Amino acid sequence: MLHASGVRTGRFTSPHLIDRWDCVTIDQQPAQESAFQQAEDLMMRRNESEAIGASKFELLTATAFELFAREKIEMGVVEVGLGGRLDATNAMQHKAVTVISKIGLDHQSFLGDTIERITREKAGIMRPGVPCVLDRSNSPAVHRVVEDYAREIGTDVVLSSTDSAFLDDLPQKDYEPHQWQNLACAYTAFHLAYTKSESPLHRLAAAVQDMQWPGRLQTLDIRGITGRQEPVLLDGAHNAQSAEVLRRYVDGRLRKEAGKVTWILAASQGKELDDVIKPLIHPGDCVTAVQFGPVDGMPWVQATPPQDILAVAAASGVADGQMHNSGADTSDAMRWATAVAAGGPIVIAGSLYLVSDVLRLLRDAEQVQARYWPNKSTHP
């Protein structure tokens, strides 16, 4: 919405999707590799010369902010890495608006084991006098913690709202409930942050309708890897909250006709597998587990062994003959799933790092095809 309104905008999200530098975008285009590496080298030299001892994520955040400064952005959209209060991104001094979206249990070992404790960590991004947009669909406990902290520091909480002529023009039936809730947060924050005198409302509907977010209910063509003609669903659901959203989508749109779903699953170590996997799987489903590869720039991220995921699948009623261990071979997982699905629905989920591996494989397959068959495309 900012970009469509003519605001020069930078975005920083983590983890990256395919290449390390795509975590930073300028006007919706991934940062150039050379520019990213120049900024990163500068941050690393400064870290060493001043003996700062910054962590990998702190260096990544500093690199993003350095790129924003070089590109002279007018507005930055910055996603926290973990929590908020102690997150590296919270070093920002000039905030126009803060946003707290739907909160669920995640990263409990770092943020606390209750919704209230996690919410307090998230609320740490708030600043005196800077409005905070709160997703109104959050639980009463989340509302209480956020509103109490807002009073404590002296700022206002603005509940996300779809009360807008702009949103009236969008067909709500085309959006999943969580997508509409996120849109309400985004629009409310945009309304508070956009300060130009010109009204951009006539540009926003097209910008929202054209929006595609990789790895979130994304439909993929995997013919270039497996020869499968039917599309597959790719979603980075990796906690109980996002797994429940994915379950509703799959059960309502894919399982309703096919019955059986074939899953390709991975997970990061430390995740509560029961909370993520059990809501997704039905007895009679097929499951292959895979271990995602090393994450560039994030050596602390480790994959869960596939056998641990399959143990949860077995406990959910999946028969031995309907499970497969793909080890660290994502291509093998996709080929096995294609064979056993026999045209039925395939869903890839459990980790954004698995999303990265899949998207990278598809890109490599396209590049090979373009090299040898330049007049054909795996994505017509």
Results as ranks from 00 to 15, higher is better:
1 M>G: 06
14 S>I: 03
15 P>L: 04
15 P>T: 05
18 I>G: 09
22 D>R: 01
22 D>M: 01
32 Q>R: 12
32 Q>E: 13
37 Q>K: 11
37 Q>P: 08
37 Q>R: 14
38 Q>K: 14
42 L>C: 14
44 M>D: 15
46 R>P: 15
47 N>Q: 08
52 I>F: 10
56 K>I: 12
62 A>M: 11
62 A>P: 08
68 F>R: 02
74 E>A: 01
75 M>A: 10
75 M>D: 06
75 M>R: 12
76 G>K: 02
95 K>F: 07
95 K>G: 02
96 A>S: 08
96 A>R: 11
98 T>N: 01
98 T>C: 08
99 V>Y: 03
102 K>Q: 11
103 I>V: 05
104 G>L: 05
105 L>N: 08
105 L>P: 00
107 H>Y: 02
112 G>Q: 00
112 G>M: 06
114 T>Q: 06
115 I>D: 10
118 I>E: 03
129 G>D: 09
129 G>T: 11
131 P>D: 06
139 S>Y: 02
139 S>Q: 10
140 P>T: 00
141 A>V: 07
141 A>T: 08
142 V>H: 01
143 H>D: 03
146 V>K: 00
148 D>G: 11
148 D>E: 15
160 S>Q: 02
164 S>N: 03
165 A>I: 04
165 A>F: 09
168 D>T: 07
171 P>N: 00
172 Q>I: 06
172 Q>Y: 10
178 H>D: 11
181 Q>I: 14
184 A>L: 03
187 Y>R: 09
189 A>N: 07
190 F>M: 04
194 Y>W: 05
198 E>T: 14
202 H>N: 06
203 R>H: 12
203 R>M: 02
207 A>Q: 07
207 A>H: 07
208 V>C: 07
208 V>D: 05
208 V>F: 08
216 R>N: 01
219 T>N: 09
220 L>G: 06
221 D>G: 13
221 D>Q: 15
222 I>C: 09
223 R>L: 08
223 R>V: 13
224 G>E: 05
227 G>T: 04
228 R>Q: 10
240 A>H: 09
241 Q>D: 15
244 E>M: 14
247 R>L: 07
251 D>N: 14
253 R>I: 06
253 R>K: 14
257 E>I: 12
260 K>L: 15
261 V>R: 06
262 T>Q: 01
264 I>C: 10
268 S>W: 10
276 V>T: 14
276 V>C: 12
277 I>A: 11
285 D>G: 08
286 C>V: 12
289 A>H: 02
290 V>P: 02
291 Q>L: 10
293 G>T: 09
295 V>S: 06
296 D>T: 11
297 G>M: 00
297 G>S: 01
299 P>Q: 01
300 W>T: 13
301 V>R: 02
301 V>D: 05
302 Q>S: 12
302 Q>V: 11
303 A>K: 05
305 P>D: 07
306 P>L: 00
308 D>Q: 09
309 I>V: 04
318 V>Y: 05
321 G>L: 13
322 Q>L: 09
325 N>T: 00
328 A>Q: 09
333 A>Q: 04
333 A>F: 03
336 W>P: 04
336 W>I: 05
343 G>R: 03
344 G>D: 01
348 I>L: 08
354 L>Y: 10
357 D>W: 06
358 V>A: 08
360 R>D: 14
361 L>A: 10
362 L>F: 08
362 L>C: 08
364 D>R: 12
368 V>K: 14
371 R>V: 07
372 Y>V: 15
376 K>G: 15
376 K>I: 14
378 T>R: 15
380 P>W: 02
